[in-house]
Design a protein around this nucleic acid. Structure first.
Length: 480
RNA sequence: GCUCCGUUGGUGUAGUCCGGCCAAUCAUUUCGGCCUUUCGAGCCGAUGACCUGGGUUCAAAUCCCAGACGGAGCACCA
């Protein structure tokens, strides 16, 4: 098996399907799998030097480790050797037709004048291509297929062409004669003993083109599966490397890991495990029609993975302050995790007033249950403690809502797919560390990205009360 | 225009090659119930699909033909 990415940028979520499926099958059938960077176009699909490592990191995050890593740009001499062999077999010819000229002949099913060149001339001209004697567009090497084939896409396709722009990898900077994907990947799949190819529907004709080369060499073509495109719901941004790049450059996205970007990096930053993505991709199967991947399926997988170990906290978004009145408890002690009492409880001082989310604000004279604290009735601009016991909740008379103390809560910026949300969280949230996962009750799961400095770290001498304004804790929203 | 390929509930998927055990699997979504000082969580349950029309057959999601719809390719991109 092989995963053959084009290293021209960081991965979007659709790319994750490749290692997810290939890696899973590799494990399931005790196979072997490599990553092969098919970086044979220094110009229009110009490789991004950082993308090579980034892609490997993404694959590891998704849960897989390639047995081997190759770069096509290291193997150019091999492709030259096979091209020469093909020429010896009279299976290829050099052609100086312009693209347009050839296209007309091809569509008419007619051979171009270069087609029956003798192999010595072709060999000479091909060596001149390798030596860089031609400029871009002047000369190509074509595979001799069937010029009358009923599918015009298969007729005498280009195997090598000239590219003036040097390859960004120094090791490959001198090459000017580059193989096309169909030739390079066809030869490599055989040489690397790939038994099964899984790739996109856009390469369906490639398989047919490559078979001509395989036939010349008398090789056996691997089993091949072509799958359709993946589309994602929930994103406004189109899943395309170039589109995301544009938005980043235009400043509309903060970077590849912006929560609004449909990228592997952004899911990672939100605290979604690679395994959750992998499982969702496996669930899509390899059908050849286009598929819509529901983000909810990734979320559901992730929830299964993290729910038990993730502690609970309160976060109030866009809070409205209401003062407390009556003989209410001064502190709430809800459990860190309702299924794991042994982890202990939280300590949330109630203070004089609390913040509630807009949707949770009670109507006049209505009762609400502040979770962990008790029952209150909204009277005379304050929440009056009623002393009702939990039965009122059981009977369905009173809704349970979450809250934070107005004074002792800490500011949190929650970064979501719909933009940033300002909120305030219970005080203990300041004790979390980056990379911790948390479930903000009734809001959802989030990954702590950075934590505001603590008062003890503060050497400026300000009072503890001010410390909350020093900075805010930043969390990335994962999912409900 | 030419050449390929596909179409199962809201979404994805199994089954299609080798017709019957498929009044169609699993997951997710939605809805309902249960649990929990009472979670947009968890548990349980429910709703919900074979693109259309012909044909073959005792029997069709499955085979054949036609149509509709969708996708991909026809690059000196990958």
């Amino acid at each position: 098996m092989r995963c053959a990415p084009n290293p021209n940028g960081p991965w979007h979520i659709g790319h994750a399907r490749m290692p997810a499926v290939i890696g899973t099958y590799e494990e399931r059938y005790d196979g072997w799998f490599c990553v092969r960077f098919d970086d044979t176009d220094p110009e229009t699909k110009r490789p991004d030097l950082e993308a090579y490592d980034q892609i490997i990191r993404d694959i590891e995050y998704l849960g897989f480790e390639p047995d081997e890593v190759y770069r096509a740009s290291d193997r150019v001499e091999t492709y030259y050797d096979h091209a020469r062999e093909l020429i010896e077999m009279d299976g290829a010819y050099t052609c100086s037709c312009s693209g347009e000229e050839f296209s007309e002949l091809k569509n008419a099913g007619e051979p171009c004048p270069h087609r029956d060149k003798d192999r010595e001339t072709t060999l000479e001209e091909f060596d001149a291509m390798i030596a860089g004697a031609y400029e871009s567009g002047e000369m190509v090497l074509r595979v001799k297929t069937d010029i009358e084939h009923k599918n015009p896409a298969l007729r005498d396709w280009v195997a090598f062409r000239m590219i003036d722009t040097p390859h960004p990898r120094e090791e490959a900077g001198e090459y000017r004669c580059w193989p096309m994907l169909d030739f390079q990947s066809g030869v490599d799949d055989h040489l690397l003993e790939i038994t099964h190819i899984i790739r996109g529907i856009d390469l369906q004709d490639s398989a047919k083109r490559q078979r001509f080369v395989y036939d010349y060499f008398d090789w056996e073509y691997p089993e091949v599966v072509h799958w359709g495109h993946v589309q994602l719901d929930e994103y406004d941004v189109k899943m395309s490397t170039s589109r995301i790049q544009e938005l980043i450059q235009g400043g509309e996205l903060a970077g590849w890991d912006d929560p609004r970007a449909p990228t592997v990096m952004s899911l990672r930053r939100r605290g979604i495990r690679g395994e959750a993505i992998t499982e969702a991709m496996i669930g899509l199967g390899t059908s050849t029609s286009d598929v819509d991947l529901a983000m909810s399926s990734i979320y559901a997988n992730n929830r299964d993975l993290i729910d038990e170990e993730t502690d609970r906290r309160f976060l109030v978004r866009d809070g409205t302050e209401l003062s407390l009145a009556g003989d209410a408890p001064t502190e709430a002690n809800p459990p860190l995790h309702p299924n794991h009492e042994d982890r202990g409880v939280r300590e949330i001082p109630a203070g004089d007033s609390v913040l509630l989310e807009p949707d949770d604000l009670p109507a006049r004279e209505e009762r609400i249950w502040l979770k962990g604290l008790g029952c209150f009735r909204y009277t005379r601009d304050a929440l009056q403690y009623t002393g009702d016991d939990i039965d009122v909740v059981r009977d369905g008379e009173v809704d349970v809502i979450h809250w934070v103390p107005a004074a002792e809560s800490v500011p949190v910026r929650l970064r979501t797919m719909d933009g940033d949300v300002e909120g305030r969280a219970e005080p203990d949230v300041a004790d979390l560390e980056s990379d911790d996962m948390v479930q903000f009750e009734r809001v959802g799961f989030a990954r702590i990205d950075s934590v505001a400095p603590r008062a003890t770290d503060d050497t400026s001498g300000r009072s503890p009360r001010d410390r909350h304004e020093d900075g805010e804790t930043v969390a990335y929203y994962a999912h409900p």
